[in-house]
Amino acid sequence: MSHFLKPPLERIPPSIVCAADYEAPARERIEKGVWAYLNGAAADSLTLAENLTAFRRLRLVPRVLAELEGGHTGVELFGTRLAHPLLVAPVALQKLAHPDGEIATAMAASALGGAMVVSMEASTKIEDIAAAAPGPLWFQLHILPDREFTLALVRRAEEAGCRALVVTVDAPVSGVRNDEQRAGFVRPSSVAPVNLEGMKPLPPHIAAPGESAIFSSPLAAAAPGWAEIAWLLSNTRLPVLLKGILHPADAARAVEAGAAGIVVSNHGGRTLDTLPATIEALPAVVRAVAGRVPVLMDGGIRRGTDVLKALALGAKAVMIGRPVIHALAAAGAPGVAHLLHMLRAELEVSMALTGCRRLEDATEALLWRDAQA
């Protein structure tokens, strides 16, 4: 039985004019349990909500009569020139949202001159995604208990032409996903994390009465630490970014360990609830990194003004997650391309009205402070 309730839109209606407009048509097309998995968050969804509202508390300063000729949104990351700083965040099992899954998303990102971070748990093989889309790909990775299999994944990503590895470090265990529990989510058998085929499973563990379900489990014993980051860095030629950092001390340690970049992220509110918004955590991480490596961020980006605020606080680029999945579910590759186009257009308008010709012009001076009133 299909988990799709309606086919994707054949044409994008003129009523869809911003990222948020894709959420309703996406929800109409996906079964309730799948929607809870794709769009839900941990516990009470407080972190998810805070990611959004924290951006709204920041205000921009307009500047007039600025020289705008020759302006652009281009950015260079790890030797790759991108047309804009909007990367597609790693999202697992995208065939849950649309039959074309990750290939549709990658084609859209490529067409718009951007990059996509492919999830290790993608529902399409990394080789097939790379063959279908000429644009730059990065590969998201968890360091698995099966280290031999992890290394094989790294080699596959390298051979497929991926230009960076993004290691998720904030999810050694899954969050408390009450939305999924209430909706009774069960992954359809037709959609699977195909890149993980052949991985050795963890031994089954059932907690005895009075025993910890987490700390006494094989998962806790196999959770990666800083030693595993050093192991990975010594076994790949690709730049390695650590994704899921909020604390400046962790950011500083990551740079000292050899990380090529930091992604400030709270996993979209999907792991631990009541964490701070990523835009609020960003400035302290940027200070700790002190320009030694690029700092990226995700979480709560819904407008071009959000992108500009992140850049003003020190981010080199941002990653977009849920809005991409909404657009994918609603309209496939054209929807994702339309979404990225809208966000880039909004960014350009925001830059022009704040006097920025280039992304490098965005500094904290763009943010309104009460003392200026």
Rank of each mutant, 00 (worst) to 15 (best):
330 A>F: 02
21 D>Q: 07
42 A>K: 02
52 L>Q: 13
150 T>Q: 09
189 S>C: 04
28 E>A: 15
255 V>Q: 12
31 E>G: 13
140 Q>C: 03
205 H>P: 03
81 R>F: 00
43 A>F: 05
63 R>A: 11
368 W>P: 06
367 L>V: 04
100 D>Y: 02
91 V>A: 10
286 V>S: 11
240 V>T: 10
214 I>T: 14
185 F>M: 09
222 A>Y: 08
82 L>S: 09
342 M>S: 11
67 E>K: 15
294 P>L: 04
324 V>S: 11
137 L>I: 05
211 E>S: 13
338 H>L: 06
124 T>E: 14
171 A>Y: 00
150 T>A: 07
119 S>K: 07
98 H>E: 06
141 L>Q: 08
247 H>A: 15
345 A>R: 15
307 V>Q: 01
175 G>E: 03
208 A>P: 03
311 L>D: 11
202 L>T: 06
281 A>Q: 05
143 I>F: 08
138 W>F: 13
201 P>T: 06
101 G>L: 13
142 H>P: 00
291 G>V: 10
330 A>R: 01
150 T>K: 07
165 L>D: 11
46 L>N: 14
283 P>T: 07
160 A>R: 08
144 L>Q: 15
225 G>C: 12
271 T>G: 02
354 T>F: 02
63 R>H: 11
246 L>D: 06
330 A>V: 10
201 P>L: 09
44 D>L: 15
59 R>E: 13
199 M>D: 00
194 V>R: 11
112 L>Y: 00
81 R>E: 14
278 T>M: 08
97 A>I: 04
100 D>M: 14
238 L>H: 13
301 I>M: 10
3 H>I: 09
216 S>R: 14
4 F>E: 03
322 R>L: 09
195 N>S: 06
334 P>F: 01
93 L>A: 11
85 P>V: 08
167 V>G: 03
323 P>Y: 04
237 R>F: 00
16 I>H: 04
261 G>V: 07
235 N>H: 15
297 M>Q: 06
137 L>D: 04
164 A>V: 03
18 C>L: 12
12 I>N: 10
33 G>T: 11
146 D>F: 05
88 V>C: 11
96 L>R: 10
276 P>W: 01
191 V>H: 09
265 S>Y: 06
311 L>W: 06
216 S>P: 06
89 A>W: 01
232 L>H: 08
179 D>W: 02
145 P>L: 01
318 V>F: 00
164 A>Q: 05
361 D>M: 08
267 H>C: 04
191 V>G: 09
79 G>S: 09
57 R>V: 00
170 D>T: 07
330 A>W: 01
242 L>A: 07
366 L>W: 09
144 L>P: 00
246 L>I: 10
343 L>R: 04
190 S>T: 14
219 L>S: 14
218 P>N: 13
